[in-house]
Write a protein that binds this DNA or RNA. Sequence first.
DNA 1: TCGCAAAAAGAATGGCGCTTCTGCTTGTAG
DNA 2: CTACAAGCAGAAGCGCCATTCTTTTTGCGA
Lengths: 186, 186
Amino acid sequence: MVPRLTDARKELRRAQIAEAAVRCFGRNGLERTSIADITAESGLSAGSIYAHYRNKADLVQAAAREVLAKRAEVLGAYAASDTPPGPDELLARLIAAIDPVEARVGVQTWGEATTDPVIRDIVVDMTDRMRAMLHDCLTAWLVKVEHHEAAGAREHAAPIAHRVMSLYQAELLYTALRSPTEETAR
Amino acid sequence: MVPRLTDARKELRRAQIAEAAVRCFGRNGLERTSIADITAESGLSAGSIYAHYRNKADLVQAAAREVLAKRAEVLGAYAASDTPPGPDELLARLIAAIDPVEARVGVQTWGEATTDPVIRDIVVDMTDRMRAMLHDCLTAWLVKVEHHEAAGAREHAAPIAHRVMSLYQAELLYTALRSPTEETAR
DNA sequence: TCGCAAAAAGAATGGCGCTTCTGCTTGTAG
DNA sequence: CTACAAGCAGAAGCGCCATTCTTTTTGCGA
């Protein structure tokens, strides 16, 4: 038996395609982006794309996962901090880390999630995961900075985490709506 | 010269089509809804639809306007109240008034707004208008209920209005993500 | 270095969905 | 009540786009 692409190389191609797809989606939207657009952006051909992704829906899912995962990553960094930031500080940092292209694709996935169950599950899962991180971070803040009694800190933190998450998502929306076409002109 | 449809009748047809469109969009999404779907839902034919709307984009815009206007209407009622509700009460009432189908179409329009300038303007305009209403309502609340000094009340109310709006929009998103397909089974 | 299977390119295909076009139908003004 | 323009239905047209198929190229193991 002989040669496949090594796994690392295969992952590289998948990432290359997914990143090109995210750029296209950010520019033209999930549905208005054709496979031809992605071939142009990635420098690969249609045949190649279909060797790495079952179909377009599969690619959209990959793009959604990528964007959401990148956001969760940023959050994870703050959550692990020794001196956890309070709600206002936390929100400010999250907002500062928003990338316009990812915000647009993120909001697009929300729209898609309202009708596509697979995308919906991805979005809900990522949202829950981020809220949980926020929850951990704020619990630590309550205990370490605010000297809140440890027992009951989690219960106190829950509604705060919910609010921070909501305000963050709203800001994501505002960013996505701000300069939708100007961005691509640069 | 002779007969057109009377204006009232013409508006009726437009509304009939737009409402059918909103139902379809809520079920299948903006792009996955075909004109054929709308003909089936409205009981009219393709030719008829094109007699009332220039094209599908025009129809999507009408649907977006309808959904957003209906939301602004609900808000307007509370804003005009003699004893204006405070932020928590206001938010609770707004959330209680959310309709699942409209929430879904609303979130879909957000996604569309990220790439379509016309839809974007509609969404931004409606959002600004709603926030202004919230602002008025909360200013009145500060003055009448909290006995805040009238001067500076508007400045105080602004960030609160922003927060209430954000939390409301987040809740709209959560509603849209909750039960996307179950709703249609009923 | 060599061979072979996988990967990539790029053209071909097939279907779907917007839009338009052709007659019938209907409602309104005189 | 009549006539005629607009409304309306339904059938085609037309283009676009996801997907597949064929051929060429390339990377990996021996």
